[in-house]
Simulated scan of single mutants.
Amino acid sequence: MDTLDKTDRRILQVLQQDARLNTKEIAHRIGLSVTPTYERLKKIEKSGVIKSYVTLLEGDKVGKTLMAFCNVSLQLHSQPLIKKFEAAIAGMTEVMECYHVAGTYDYLLKVVVDDMRRYQHFLTNKLAAIENIGQVHSSFVMTEIKHTTAFELL
């Protein structure tokens, strides 16, 4: 989709707050009738603007009480080694997010596990087992101040 008009953006803003809303509820919230809302939503979905519909869980309530951000440096930066690292990280369920970054480190990982013992297991048996790891520096989250998944669109 090349451009999103104001109405498309309002639809997306509403969906980012509650993706369970049906078309009638979305239409009511944005002040449009059901049929045009449905057609716009299908067009937006087809364009790939919406990646997926998900349920966000409260980590503490499902036993995931430890969150860490890991700064990772690689020893060498050849394309095959980078691809191998990224493939290994993509397969690790403890890694919730991974970013290739510029600066002092090469990657920033968001890791969520049950407790410190599980983090140590992850670090020593999974992350450190990847070929070409240079350094890992971990920062542990004490309090989450803000966490959002919604983009400001209006």
Rank of each mutant, 00 (worst) to 15 (best):
L4E: 05
L4Y: 06
D5E: 06
D5F: 04
D5K: 05
D5P: 03
K6S: 14
T7C: 01
D8F: 11
R9Y: 05
I11C: 10
I11G: 11
L12R: 08
L12D: 09
L15C: 03
Q16D: 08
D18I: 06
D18R: 11
K24W: 04
K24D: 10
E25G: 11
G31P: 03
L32I: 06
L32C: 12
L32N: 10
S33R: 09
S33Y: 02
V34T: 09
T35L: 09
T35W: 02
T35P: 04
P36Q: 08
T37P: 09
Y38M: 08
Y38L: 12
Y38G: 03
E39A: 14
E39V: 13
E39L: 15
R40W: 10
K42G: 00
K43N: 09
I44S: 02
I44G: 02
I44R: 04
E45K: 12
K46E: 14
V49G: 01
V49L: 03
I50H: 11
S52P: 06
Y53W: 06
Y53N: 01
Y53H: 08
V54G: 05
T55D: 07
T55C: 05
T55Q: 10
L56H: 12
L57T: 08
L57P: 02
L57D: 04
E58I: 03
G59T: 11
D60Y: 05
D60P: 01
D60H: 09
K61C: 00
V62K: 03
V62W: 03
K64N: 11
T65M: 01
T65N: 14
L66Q: 05
M67T: 15
M67G: 10
M67W: 04
M67L: 07
M67F: 05
F69Y: 07
C70T: 06
N71G: 14
V72Q: 00
S73Q: 11
L74N: 00
Q75G: 01
L76M: 13
S78D: 12
Q79V: 13
K83L: 08
K84N: 09
E86F: 06
I89A: 14
M92I: 13
M92Y: 06
T93F: 07
E94W: 01
C98R: 05
Y99S: 09
Y99F: 13
Y99E: 05
Y99D: 04
A102T: 15
A102E: 07
Y105S: 14
D106P: 08
Y107T: 05
L108V: 12
L108N: 07
L109E: 03
L109Q: 04
K110C: 07
V111A: 04
V111C: 06
V112I: 14
V113K: 07
V113P: 09
D114K: 14
M116R: 10
R117L: 08
R117N: 12
Y119E: 02
Y119F: 15
H121G: 03
H121W: 09
F122M: 01
F122D: 01
T124D: 10
N125A: 03
N125F: 01
N125R: 08
K126F: 09
K126T: 05
K126H: 14
L127N: 00
I130E: 01
E131L: 04
I133Y: 07
H137M: 08
S138M: 00
S139F: 00
S139R: 00
V141F: 00
V141R: 00
M142H: 11
M142L: 14
M142I: 15
T143C: 02
K146R: 14
T149G: 15
T149D: 08
T149Q: 12
F151A: 13
